[in-house]
């Protein structure tokens, strides 16, 4: 599905679906992106995590070529997202933060409308495939204002799948979606990944971040870290609490506890005095929140 391009920029591998290099964007005096740099591999589920106002939507708009960055480059599927934006848009699916569909129209009419933008060839079949994929085919002719919030999100996801995209850009796809439907959405995402689709999504929910193959943490328009969720979690400090004989308590913070814990314990000769060791491993959410608070991931 993914076709590598001949003119790759330095540092860009043929397997990169998105390469963002030193991106700056300011709205008046407020800067939304300050030198954001990251690369998304083809075929992965990539999460952009950060608080509201961190620059997530601005980054997405730059990827779709709707927004012109002040400085820096965005390459999507081997193409320049600004200059070649129409070629890029034909190959990507975009799901905005709001449902972004017309309330008075049915899912089928909405998809037929948006799908016609780049030509209507084979559209009927693709509308059917997309609506069946999200389980809305039965409700295809009901106006959207009769739908629940979750159904609207599903209709919006179906709309983003219309062109059988190689790259799916999802801006907070599960915001306001109940846990059952969220699980269904993630099944959809995994199903799309199996088909070779690259998924780039934003979220501010950590239970979603852990499901991504890799995660970038963005704060104040700057990228703090890009790693697998496990690697990010491993950056957290482990708090160790020793309960010694006679009720004495000793607390310490260590990095990689597998290596550092024995070292810590040699102070005590690993004697029988150590009754119990309890370890609190930070959750991904703890680590990311402390990064955002401190802006200092290595402590």
């Amino acid at each position: 599905m993914f076709t590598p391009s001949d003119d790759l920029s330095p540092g860009e591998s043929a397997a990169s679906a998105i390469v963002i290099d030193g991106l700056y964007k300011a709205y008046g005096s407020v800067s939304a992106l300050s030198g954001a740099t990251l690369a998304v591999d083809a075929g992965e589920i990539f999460g952009l995590v950060g608080p509201n106002g961190a620059g997530k939507t601005t980054l997405i708009k730059a990827i779709c070529g709707v927004l012109k960055p002040d400085r820096g480059a965005v390459r999507v599927l081997g193409l320049d997202s600004g200059r070649d934006r129409h070629a890029v848009r034909r190959r990507l699916g975009y799901m905005p933060q709001e449902p972004a569909l017309y309330e008075d129209l049915s899912p089928r009419e909405n998809l037929a409308f948006f799908g016609s933008g780049y030509g209507a060839a084979g559209l009927e079949q693709r509308i059917r495939d997309s609506l069946e994929f999200v389980g809305l085919w039965e409700r295809r002719d009901d106006p959207l204002h009769t739908f629940s919030g979750g159904m609207r999100q599903r209709a919006s996801l179906a709309c983003s799948l219309l062109r059988d995209p190689e790259l799916l850009i999802l801006d907070e796809p599960t915001a306001g979606v109940d846990p059952t439907l969220k699980a269904a959405f993630w099944e959809h995402f995994q199903g799309l990944k199996q088909r070779g689709v690259t998924i780039f999504l934003t979220t501010n929910m950590m239970d979603e971040a852990v499901r991504c193959d890799r995660v970038t943490v963005i704060q104040g328009g700057r990228i703090l870290v890009t790693e697998t969720p496990d690697a990010i979690r491993a950056r957290g400090r482990t708090r160790v609490r020793l309960e010694l004989a006679g009720g004495v308590i000793r607390e310490a913070e260590i990095g990689r506890y597998e290596e550092e814990l024995p070292r810590l314990l040699t102070d005590y000769g690993l004697s029988g005095e150590v009754r119990r060791i309890s370890i609190h491993r930070p959750s991904l959410e703890d680590v990311i929140l402390s990064m955002i608070e401190n802006r200092n991931p290595d402590g």
Binding site: V66, R89, E98, P99, A100, L101, F114, G117, Y118
Partner: peptide, 13 residues
């Protein structure tokens, strides 16, 4: 406001 305008642009209008 609803994002349909941005969607129109991304969808080729």
């Amino acid at each position: 406001k609803d994002g349909t305008l941005a969607r129109m642009f991304v969808y080729g209008f």
